[in-house]
Write a protein that binds this DNA or RNA. Structure first.
Lengths: 319, 319
DNA sequence: ACAGATATGCTCACCATGAGTATAAGCCAT
DNA sequence: ATGGCTTATACTCATGGTGAGCATATCTGT
């Protein structure tokens, strides 16, 4: 941390480097799903994530953010977790150039009409078109991304390392696509100068930049959030935060598919949900599905604590 | 966790919105394992985690912390990840009462002689004696914790809710013990006033406080770190960061047991490690094991990228 | 009535996992 | 050297979760 290694023994003190004021800002990745499209709440015409200063008036980060989001959406927030704290030394508040630390949060909710006019839901695949594989791998990957990454790989560093990184991230050369590597993919494209945010620093590369840009590193934060939801959805029943109180199993499946960007095997998905007893029937059916009416279900809230019991991956001996 | 707002003891700030300076501090949970005992690096006689101010000179949090830790341990740091950012409104720097935000990191390394004399490794179960179940559930749980939590449950709030919380956290009433609930257990004991840190605020409860205390909320941060390692060890080959370059399978097993605080089924553990091809034989054997000499293994670094391929939990359709 | 769509139920093979047993190869005390 | 102790290593067997696919039910619209 410092030259001697002893500085850390003391709590941050007055000595040494004059402390430049540090701005602490909160950034929210607020996600919802509507009609098979995953959405993120944005401001400034879709170019920024909602953010605010971490002022003294907030009792805690969490509750302050929750209150703010609930004012914005007019809907109580189901799920809120801390995402990551971004604090690279070159992060600056655009307005005054102060050093900025951004503490980001991930929030899940149902889509609701927005109370404030500045904010708007945007499909998150506008920002990451290469992340939606529900209709197969997007043509853009083979047509634009792979060739440009190949050119980047040969242009510096260790080409074989770069090629492998690209192949792992994007599932090239017969490797499987891993939907969780959202951040790695974004950072790779950034490094390769293929997205607009990177070109502010690097010289222009060929071709058009990929996906819709955002200010600062907001898109990177969004990538972090998407990666987190995609990972969490697998071992934690957070999907239900995105669902209305009653829903059909296909709606639930479509929601999972929207988030993960992948297609799910219908019979096995139903079996999984049912055998894990995540839901219970409401007794109602929903008729306007285009086919046979579907039973509707609700989330079994009791699962949350039962889940306590679940899930070892270590081969234990019985006590 | 923090029951009451203590806006009172805030130094008289310029009124209202005026931004009070916020101290940003880094805290490290640096873990190692030696001789079947998991260790954490501490300072101040084991009463604090190493911490330091986040100054302007640092390129980024991560690299600054890495450099500092490597000077302390004289060993390159294998693994470093951000843990959590603590920023409740009543967190204060002890010396000057400034508002403090602490960004905590988890680092894994092999135990090494320390370069600096102020720092020392401590067994982490000194701070959380109830977390070590390798010799069965600690007697302390049934003898002290359960009865005191039972008394607490009846003393306020909704007793049935409190009882269930306690039972889930500590595996009471026939519920299974979940080794990952380190933080929930600590926070429960804190709320119940059974640990020293809580008694600074609450009135004294009966009996002795549980486990060795730390300053501020360092023990809570340590709990967060332990929970993270215990979770991560299951789906990510981070254990190897705690191991020497060559090791026997039993040593590896003991390391996992030390971290998780649980006993592992030996044949199945070996099968798991081998079939996942996490390791490869070195060709050497180790004789001083007290029995038949054991083959030694090394971690297959190639796994890290192969792991890219691994692990879906969603029932996908084939593309 | 029939086509088309979705809902729902069921089968079957395979493999990871939990649990336990058996044999091999060192060391040490007698 | 021998027998007993300790650890290493290999195998078995039942069970249950998972991947993949098929079959039947019940709507709407023509």
């Amino acid at each position: 941390m410092d030259a001697t290694g002893r500085e850390m023994d003391r709590p941050a003190a007055a000595d040494g480097v004059a402390t430049q004021p540090i701005e602490v800002e909160l950034i929210a990745v607020l996600a919802a799903v509507a009609d098979g499209s995953p959405l993120v709440m944005t401001i400034e015409g879709g170019r920024a994530l909602p953010s605010g200063s971490f002022g003294v008036e907030h009792r805690s980060l969490q509750s302050g953010l929750r209150a703010w989001v609930e004012r914005q959406t007019g809907h109580t927030l189901g799920y809120l977790e801390q995402l990551y704290t971004f604090a690279d030394s070159d992060r600056r508040i655009p307005s005054n150039g102060a050093r900025a630390i951004s503490i980001s949060y991930l929030a899940l909710t149902r889509e609701e009409r927005l109370a404030a006019s500045q904010a708007a839901w945007r499909p998150w695949y506008e920002y990451f078109p290469w992340e939606d594989h529900r209709a197969g791998p997007p043509a853009q990957i083979a047509a634009e991304i792979a060739p440009q990454l190949a050119r980047w790989a040969e242009s510096g560093g260790d080409p074989s390392v770069r090629r492998r990184r690209a192949a792992i991230a994007f599932g090239l050369d017969g490797r499987p696509w891993n939907e969780e590597f959202v951040l790695q993919r974004y950072e790779l494209l950034y490094e390769a100068g293929l997205i607009a945010e990177a070109r502010r620093r690097l010289g222009d590369a060929d071709g058009l930049p990929l996906g819709a840009p955002m200010i600062g590193d907001h898109r990177r934060i969004l990538a972090t959030g998407i990666a987190r939801v995609r990972a969490k959805i697998k071992y934690n029943p957070v999907v239900f935060e995105l669902m209305p109180p009653a829903f059909t199993l296909l709606q639930l499946q479509r929601c999972v598919e929207a988030v993960s960007g992948l297609n799910v095997h219908k019979p096995n998905f139903r079996r999984l949900i049912e055998q894990q007893q995540l839901v219970e029937e409401t007794g109602e059916t929903m008729a306007d599905t285009g086919g046979r009416p579907a039973k509707t279900y609700r989330f079994r809230a009791a699962v949350r604590e039962e889940r306590a019991a679940a899930g070892t991956k270590l081969p234990l001996t019985r006590a």
